[in-house]
């Protein structure tokens, strides 16, 4: 899923400093799963902002709505009748949400309440780690299901580098060396010789290096499925 962190209250308060009435829109997708932008978090942000503004003697009226997703126009459309009733709209979705909202409702201001961080999963309750870099050409089968693009600081296709020490990457003691994991797994499976294979250069055009990306599924576009 897409993982995000909430911006500080200070930053969000600054964004809505001139507003008297706002809407906070949550998303029931990834950000609900990573406990940062669902119904509950929308309520907490709303209450916190109201407390801060009441303390400042500058009340703010806040309404809340949590959409199924903010990355599909059919759900964004649900705001059409009310979206212009507010001075601004704060989106608690990943970076996609406020953009879809901005594109559909051109007269309204949209603020992001989250910092979108990475594609990953929860390794324990409250801890999320990056697992995918969305490079557009998956090669993890060559590395026994472990991704050196997302998880190696240098995205090495042939590793580890000299910065790997006791299974830890030199960039931080909290970052495990994925190449150490890859080598260990190959050894466990008796397939260490796989790593003697020299891989071709990676074609980065399918990643961000090729500019903004687009995915077209012809059968869906034609409405056959």
């Amino acid at each position: 899923m897409i993982v995000a962190d909430r911006k500080s209250l200070e930053e969000i308060l600054e964004m809505v400093a001139d507003c008297k009435k706002i809407l906070i829109v949550g998303c029931k997708g990834c950000v609900t799963v990573c406990n940062v932008g669902g119904i509950k978090e929308v309520e907490i942000l709303s209450s916190s902002l109201e407390i801060a503004r009441k303390k400042a003697g500058n009340d703010i009226e806040i309404e809340m709505k949590t959409l199924e997703r903010q990355c599909d126009n059919e759900y964004i459309e649900q705001l059409s009748e009310t979206v212009n009733d507010y001075d601004a709209v704060v989106s608690m979705a990943c970076g996609v949400g406020p953009q879809f909202l901005s594109e559909m409702y051109r007269d309204q201001k949209f603020f992001p309440a989250l910092n979108t961080t990475f594609f990953g999963g929860a390794t324990e309750h409250g801890v999320w780690e990056e697992r995918c870099a969305g490079c557009g050409t998956c090669i993890i089968h060559k590395y026994d299901g472990l991704c050196p693009i997302a998880r190696c600081a240098k995205s090495l296709l042939h590793g580890p580098c000299g910065g790997s020490s006791n299974s830890v990457c030199e960039i931080s003691k909290d970052t495990e060396c994925v190449w150490d994991l890859i080598v260990r797994k190959k050894m466990e499976q008796g397939r260490l010789e796989d790593l003697f294979i020299v891989n071709d250069f990676k074609d980065w055009r399918s990643a961000r290096d090729g500019g903004p990306r687009r995915s077209i599924r012809e059968e869906l576009v034609q409405g056959n499925i």
């Binding site: 509950k40 309520e43 907490i44 209450s47 109201e50 407390i51």
Partner: peptide
Amino acid sequence: VDIIHLLNAIK
């Protein structure tokens, strides 16, 4: 008891 109950009391 949830976070929101405590916050709303203060609010």
